[in-house]
Design a protein around this nucleic acid. Sequence first.
DNA 1: TTGTAGGCGTTATCAA
DNA 2: TTGATAACGCCTACAA
Lengths: 369, 369
Amino acid sequence: MSDTGAAKRPPTIDDVLRLRAAEPLPSRDGNPVEGVPRDGAAPPRIVEIARLAGVSPITVSRALRHPEKVAEAKRRKILEIVERTGYATNPHARALRSGQSNIVAAFVSNLQSEQFCLAVQGCGEVLEPQGYQLMIGQTSYSYAKETTMIQSLREMRPAAVMFTGVIEIEENRRALRALGIPIMETWAYPRDPIDMLVGFSNIDSGRQAAEHFAERGYRRVGFIGRRSGRGALRLTGFREGARAAGLDIVAELSVDGVSSMVDGRRALGDLLSRNAAVEAVFCANDLLATGALLEARRLGMRLPDDIAILGFGHNDVAEELPPGLTTIGIDSRDLGRQAGSMILQRMRGEMPSEPICAVELTLTRRGSS
Amino acid sequence: MSDTGAAKRPPTIDDVLRLRAAEPLPSRDGNPVEGVPRDGAAPPRIVEIARLAGVSPITVSRALRHPEKVAEAKRRKILEIVERTGYATNPHARALRSGQSNIVAAFVSNLQSEQFCLAVQGCGEVLEPQGYQLMIGQTSYSYAKETTMIQSLREMRPAAVMFTGVIEIEENRRALRALGIPIMETWAYPRDPIDMLVGFSNIDSGRQAAEHFAERGYRRVGFIGRRSGRGALRLTGFREGARAAGLDIVAELSVDGVSSMVDGRRALGDLLSRNAAVEAVFCANDLLATGALLEARRLGMRLPDDIAILGFGHNDVAEELPPGLTTIGIDSRDLGRQAGSMILQRMRGEMPSEPICAVELTLTRRGSS
DNA sequence: TTGTAGGCGTTATCAA
DNA sequence: TTGATAACGCCTACAA
């Protein structure tokens, strides 16, 4: 990597001209350009492989797509030539003719989420070695964007679709089902997934939070989180668990939109000013919890003695913040891997014995509770 | 969103059978399935739009692709019908025939990086409204993966490619150039970008760090970071700046691989044990800096009096950690937007007047320095 | 400004 | 097990 250290002085026209002269761009029409090595040569096509192997193109196609249908010797020869020439199927021609592409669409609610990215990465780890390409989209928690993206899938003809979440809008559910491809939902435990699911119960996470507080001897507890989506489910479980364990929920603070640490700070401040007697707070995600933890320390409170804080999400950073955030969560990368395996199985035409799969929620206890 | 709260009890075969009975999947061959509404009907094709508009298919194609070449009245009618029917061009047929797809490939070194994701998001904000789809890939800082992915581009025929980084391997640079499409590199300021660049000087960032320390009156300074890639550039600049300002670099600690907060903690510990007199430390990224900051506080040091810490990356979380991390960085989302605009311009066939664009480095001073 | 003819590269279908 | 033929849906080239 070179670095001219010139950022302070924006490049002059002269700089640019010098650069362009040194390295001319290929012309837009693909014709060779002086100085550009002739590796812009058209990549080999299936007919070329067929010619080299002395077979017809369809046999090459079969050797690649359904190896078992081609005689051993021919198959070996074809694959050897494919290897040698670096032949790669044109994915568009393939998708056009067969309606099957090697693209797997993955939608995350928010790319900034460490956990969602981990799940997508895990899924990619399983699928990419098999020749599939992940196409990642961000729905930004917006139904409108989700709907648009799902519509665009019809023409894209992905081999499968995965979401870090579940699809709630009935029209979108129908559109997805109509694609006739494997659909993977995650991150919740709905009664009626569209097709396949690797999920966990958000309600259970709330219950576990309450149970944990009860075990640790806290009685007056609070909740910080969104009143919609997964936050609402976690609150529902938290209420159930609190009732069952005889805890007293002294405050429920709601947060809007994509939550941040600042929201968590503010919410804890509000909560304490309204009800100073609260002993333990469950935050519906680790960002909120981290904000709450920092605010508590800023106020000079000792954790967990003055106040206990419990988050959700197994966030990395929160482990390092003294005294360490106790958090409930799942192994997101593993969830992604499981989702990938199930998708793969379905793309191969096998039905997984189990289209619904629950991943385990674990509580990682650190210093904050 | 429903949640049966059943994750603790893994679903039984009965659960599954009940679910499957309630919502049968469409069959793999796309034929209608009982209970699935007939919206699996084939989407409209260009011929259908042409028939409805009373024109030939090519006119519809032109109305969409080159509106200026179609008579006003016809164009309006065609676009109205396209709107009404929800017609969408089949991207594979388009790519196959024209060699131009609506996919823009975006490669990040690491999906877990807040800053890289922001840049990709910014780029998407500009491109998606224009009908382009971002296909995100992760190179994981691996040359092998980078090479594989670049090779796969040849067949994918993306409309453009963007990287959160620069391509160093000459073979990959040639392969990219041979694609004949806009290539955007970022996050550095090399002498010879492949095509277009929105970057900043990593060397300058190091210089600025040294200058900041000098202004604040620190004399004995240290560095924590990688010895390769961008870390090495930042160190180079830091050394230059230190020399120019008469600072004394008392220690340079190197870190391997993808850095973490724990690396930062450990490095600061090492540094202090070797050279307790160090007054200020520049960390090549905010994760390292955050670890260092936490370690300093754990050791009971006051910031910035006992030790000053300066990071790189404008990390969000680091703002919230008392006393707040001072950090040098860029506006990553804005970098992404600029990159998107330039890519767009090139895809429209215009040459941007300026293929190289420098974004500003800013120092955000908080409590740690 | 509009239309006709044909092909992009692959694979489904059917025949041998 | 292999091959010939045609078609996927669109857009380039050329003609009118």
